[in-house]
Design a protein around this nucleic acid. Structure first.
Length: 403
RNA sequence: GGGGAGAUGGCCGAGCGGUCAAUGGCAGCAGACUGUAAAUCUGCCGGCGUACGCCUACGGAGGUUCGAAUCCUUCUCUCCCCA
């Protein structure tokens, strides 16, 4: 099968991308690829230490998918080796060090989730332990000699940590090098990553050059902020929309993003094409259009993307019912009463609240409703034979008690 | 190798023998207002008990004391300066 023209390919490749470095080299590579009818090798590394994927990860996976659609060879590098060592970079605690088995298990789950985006049948999956694990100390030292401390310290987060006297371990300097080795191993033509990966991606170029390879082109993608619109999307911030979130959650969470994020979510999260983006921008700048409606469209497109349009309609209906009409959802967890029980215990045991203390607080704050009426009685209890009641805690926690 | 500083609740950061479950900020949760937007206001924000209260917590382990996050010893870890 032939490739599309350079121009056509670039249009898709650059959609949503932050930087393509150097663009000229990419054009050359694409040209060669067309001429020799050979797909380019597109590398994406993933960290299997955190197995829950969200639409933030989706941004870069989507870009890899674009390359698949253009007929290139996508390679997913599972960083099981690096995960095994345990990268202590990042804000606070040392990361848990995974065993190779854990990393492998997580990797499987990762691939399973990535299937929502990638064409798995044409995906090459490799584990970097298969080459990094066998390097001996002298090889590592030789590798380490190719970079200087000053250059390492150029990296943004190292600079920051160094200045604020936050520890940096020596082995962290080896991370970019290990990642770069992956590029050498694969003879990658292009490597994808978030903007925070820029330094690491560039190291790959240097190492490839040292090994006599043509350096890879790097493509960085913006980091998608989470639903709070401030921090980057991350499960630990609790601001993520998971790829495996239930359709209703995906829809609801999307509607909770701030208006300022709508455009970005369309582009990066929903993979909107140029035409859609124009339309969205037009609507957002039109004061007669309620931004909420644009957001509703976004939510529905996201659900459609990860599920299907029918599910999106259902999610929307659920949302309207629960949050706009403040009605109860069609489906909710049920609790069968076998003996008289305190409301507080029911809440606690079913996980509607984290502790009884939280339950008490919620009740005090009028956050607990029974059949729509705020419950102020902390000692209230349910007796068998009392029939059905719907308990609501906060905005979105429901439970049907059957007695 | 020598000298100095430090480790506090999800994070930052006060406290320096009792009044400390620990000021404050951020994050979070809930309520009001809304479009599950933003902004704003209010309350909550270790666990258990209706509550007086009890238990567990200030890097780990010991100790001094009627009483310790606060003092001493020791261990672990971190940062800075000198070599």
């Amino acid at each position: 099968m032939g490739f599309k023209s350079i121009k056509e390919q670039l249009a898709l490749i650059s959609r949503g991308a932050e930087e393509i470095l150097p663009l000229k080299e990419l054009e050359v590579k694409l040209g060669q690829s067309i001429k020799t009818n050979t797909p380019l090798v597109i590398k994406l590394g993933c960290d299997p230490s955190r197995p829950d994927l969200h639409i933030g990860h989706g941004v870069v996976l989507r870009k890899l998918r674009h390359f698949q659609e253009l007929g290139h060879q996508a390679v997913l590098v599972i960083g099981d080796f690096t995960a095994m060592i345990g990268d202590p970079s990042g804000r606070n605690k040392t990361r848990p060090q995974l065993t190779l088995e854990d990393a492998k298990a997580n990797a499987e789950s990762y691939v399973d989730q990535a299937e929502a985006i990638l064409d798995i049948t044409n995906l090459k999956i490799v584990y970097n332990s298969s080459w990094l694990n066998s390097m001996n100390f002298s090889e590592v030292i030789k590798l380490a000699s190719k970079y200087t401390v000053a250059r390492m310290l150029e990296r943004d987060d190292f600079t920051k940590r160094y200045k604020t006297e936050v520890p940096i371990s020596i082995h962290e300097f080896l991370y970019p090098l290990a990642q770069g080795m992956d590029s050498v191993e694969l003879n990658a033509d292009v490597e994808l990553g978030g903007t925070d990966q820029k330094f690491n991606l560039l190291v790959g170029r240097d190492l490839q050059r040292e090994s006599g390879q043509e350096p890879q082109v790097i493509i960085t993608l913006p980091l998608l902020e989470g639903t709070d619109g401030v921090e980057k999307m991350s499960k630990s911030y609790g601001n993520h929309i998971g790829l495996h979130d239930a359709p209703e959650d995906m829809y609801g969470k999307t509607l909770s993003i701030s208006d300022a994020m709508i455009e970005k979510y369309f582009l990066l999260g929903a993979d909107a094409d140029d035409k859609t983006m124009d339309d969205v921008r037009k609507q957002l700048s039109d004061s007669s259009v309620n931004p909420r409606d644009v957001k509703r469209r976004l939510a529905s497109e996201l659900v459609t993307l990860y599920y299907d349009s029918e599910t999106a309609i259902k999610a929307e209906k659920h949302f309207d019912q629960v949050f706009i009409k403040k009605d109860i959802p069609d489906d909710m967890d049920e609790f069968q009463l076998s003996e008289e029980m305190q409301l507080l215990d029911i809440l606690n045991e079913t996980g509607l609240v984290k502790s009884k203390g939280e339950g008490r607080r919620m009740i005090k704050q009028n956050a607990v409703r029974i059949d729509g009426n705020p419950c102020k009685d902390q000692l209230m209890s349910f007796k068998p034979g009392c029939g059905e009641a719907v308990i609501k805690v906060g905005k979105r926690r429901f439970l049907k008690v059957k007695g």
